[in-house]
Design a protein around this nucleic acid. Structure first.
Lengths: 126, 126, 126, 126
DNA sequence: GTGGTCTAGACCACT
DNA sequence: GTGGTCTAGACCACC
């Protein structure tokens, strides 16, 4: 699992880290039950502070995507991922809406937009 | 054009303002050439700081969605909206990708995701 | 609102802080909509680090007990408190069970235990 | 006596072990004078570290719930359990208070709370 | 060696 | 001035 961070990005590092791990799980590169690097090794691997890694891990734990054992370290939730729920749908809608609005504003047709979504979907899943 | 802000939201107010105006244009509620309230009146209307409105307007101007004249005030770009360009596509991809990844992780099928996008698209356009 | 912390306690400081604030709300000493001290002033008031206060505030925010505005500071949730839900009941059960077990082991009768609970209940509410 | 540990839990394993044994005694499944598995066999039975079992036993011994003989092994205190004392009441109060406060905050009535306590009491005793 | 907690000090975004 | 983020370094509990 290779993590790529953009230190110049406006996105907080811990958010980028969360996104990368989520994508890793979504794409199947990280399997349920699989171990993730310890906060310390992950931090030194990618050259950031361990607290930043910790924050990312904690947020992922909160969503029940990973489990954090005090001693054994961190693993992808072995029982698989939580389903779509109300809370998630609301968040998703809130994130999607402005992006779609701006696409419409710039004249993208519904089909073009769907093509884009499909291509990203396939790209991640592949 | 009614602006609705959620002061509880973690989204910065200026971002919410930008989103609302973009959606206004996308939905046709704001037409090219149409005037927007001045920084001052917008600020007092919705009870926020001048700087906040200013920041939103400046960002919209930078994307060429609106024109700001020192005298004539603020108007939706009368020449219509800019097309989809490389810069926009890149930004869109960066925003869409994590949302789609998380949807996959939670087991949404491509069709379910597209349904969601379609329904938002139609909701804005309507 | 006076906060009392025991720096010797085995309970983490941020947990004690959370408990105190919860009790403040439960007892009516803190009312919905009422402002809490900023992380910085709270931290310096009680002589701890601002990150520790931050952690407590964030956890309270997570449970929807308080709202954190980026600029305006922190307020008790003006819409009132969330109801009892499944998640809370489970947590409560998990905390209560060992305490009650040990009470039984030491020979407390059900009535004695209930008396104790009642007296604490009244003490907080008063 | 079956011990069930949740390795995912944020409760330390030794604490879970203590709780289980206390509940075993409280419920009458473990009787005064009854033998408990040796540190070694307990550890290998449930697949945890020796030190962890040791720590649990030591803490139980300190509360005078069990006796640890170098040769004869570990037994539930044959003289019966210690009564409620000041130290215990103080500890109990400290644990109960935050739970009750949060229950009040979420709008539980005193009767609802007592019902919950009663049902747990009966569940353990049964 | 693992994560959890706490401190300290810095810079930034937002209003 | 507010919270958000990041870094750095330390000690502790657990196993």
């Amino acid at each position: 699992m290779i993590i790529e961070l953009d230190m110049q990005s406006e996105l907080p590092i811990y958010t980028q880290l969360i996104n990368q791990i989520i994508e890793g799980i979504a794409s199947g590169k990280l399997l349920p039950g699989e171990a993730l690097p310890s906060v310390r090794s992950m931090a030194s691997d990618i050259g950031i502070n361990l607290h930043t890694v910790n924050k990312a891990y904690n947020q992922l734990k909160q969503e029940d995507y990973i489990h954090v054992h005090r001693q054994k370290g961190v693993v992808v939730n072995p029982n698989g991922m939580p389903e779509v729920d109300e809370h998630f749908t609301a968040r998703q809608l809130q994130q999607l809406r402005p992006v779609i609005a701006e696409a419409i504003l710039r004249g993208m047709s519904q089909d073009e937009l769907i093509d884009m979504v499909e291509s990203i979907y396939k790209d991640i899943k592949a």
